[in-house]
Nucleic acid binder design. Structure first.
Lengths: 190, 190
DNA sequence: GTCTATAACTCGATAGAC
DNA sequence: GTCTATCGAGTTATAGAC
């Protein structure tokens, strides 16, 4: 395996730091120490903090969509949603990780505009993807009848994001599993 | 009406700032300018930034519980939950406010311990209150049978918190209303 | 591509006058 | 209780050597 590129290491470490501590609370030094370089080397790869954060979110979005394109492309909406739940369940198991964009959403007004746009884009594309799956499940007769695909999709996204928040800050360990079970119950997935 | 005390003004302004920008991104100067005083005057009322934030959350918890004790003490769980939804719906309508503790949860690991304890306490007492209402509604035959009160309560809290996040950061304006409607559907409140 | 050194700034917090 | 003045630490970002 080729040695990981420095810029990729920076992105990976920064993502983890934002997921635990947020954007405003982390510094170039926090990142540099963990990557094993010095502060100015980060600026060589990313012009400033905002550009770095925007690149981190952009990478996260690609990863997320890539996973879905690869593993959630079956004709069963229920099976596709099962894949979708996995990252949330994994973050939940970690105990102190929340969704990257959920963390950034908490301090939204304090973010540089380029980061705000990336975060908004994440939520919108997630919403679109879920919406497509709900529609598929309704047409397939996999899900309960009479569902509003759009409203159901916003709700699914909301309760997964919120579950990670409440799990970590409230110490309520079953949050994500409870959210997933409730979603399945509501959609009538056995 | 008596003139508002400076310490109360500081708490009120700080709450709004955290709800929009988070904890790490705001400074004593941001607060002082809005209150109409200078930085050092804040330290006269609150020894340091952590103590101020802890006081803000403490005040928020009292306000929230006070509202519930006053307006949500009927024998109908459905009616009590209706009161509970109001602050979330109001934050949602504002467009850029989220729950104070939802904002703080996003940067949880970066908070001073005294603030973390307050935030954890908020989520736990909210969870307890909702849990009591769900149990009441089950015993009253107001809600669907077979509900797990504890898991349902975590889910209700999660999806309201998440709805505020997704609403603001994703620009999806119907989020909170969708969450409330879905909760009612799930519990079988007409 | 990484480093040392440092500029320019902002932060939380303190000292002490009024 | 509020102020001016300031400290010391930490911040992003830059300059320039290697």
């Amino acid at each position: 395996m080729a040695t990981e590129r420095t810029s990729d290491k920076i992105i990976k470490i920064t993502q983890e730091l934002i997921q635990t501590r947020g954007y405003s609370a982390i510094s170039f030094d926090d990142i540099a120490v963990r990557v094993g370089i010095k502060k100015p080397s980060i600026v060589h790869h990313f012009a400033n903090k905002g550009e770095l954060a925007a690149a981190v979110v952009d990478n996260y979005r690609s990863m997320f969509l890539g996973l879905l394109a690869q593993s959630a492309n079956s004709e069963s909406a229920a099976r596709n949603l099962e894949v979708y739940f996995q990252p949330y369940l994994q973050f939940g198991e970690s105990g102190n990780l929340i969704c990257l964009c959920g963390a950034l959403a908490g301090e939204f007004s304090a973010l540089p505009e380029s980061v705000q746009l990336q975060v908004s884009g994440f939520f919108q594309e997630q919403h679109n993807w879920i919406c497509q799956q709900i529609s598929l499940g309704i047409n397939n007769n996999e899900f309960a009848t009479g569902l509003d695909a759009n409203a159901t999709a916003t709700w699914v996204l909301s309760c997964l994001q919120g579950a990670l928040l409440v799990r970590r800050a409230g110490g309520i360990t079953t949050c994500v599993e409870d959210a997933v079970l409730t979603i399945k119950n509501y959609l009538r997935i056995s």
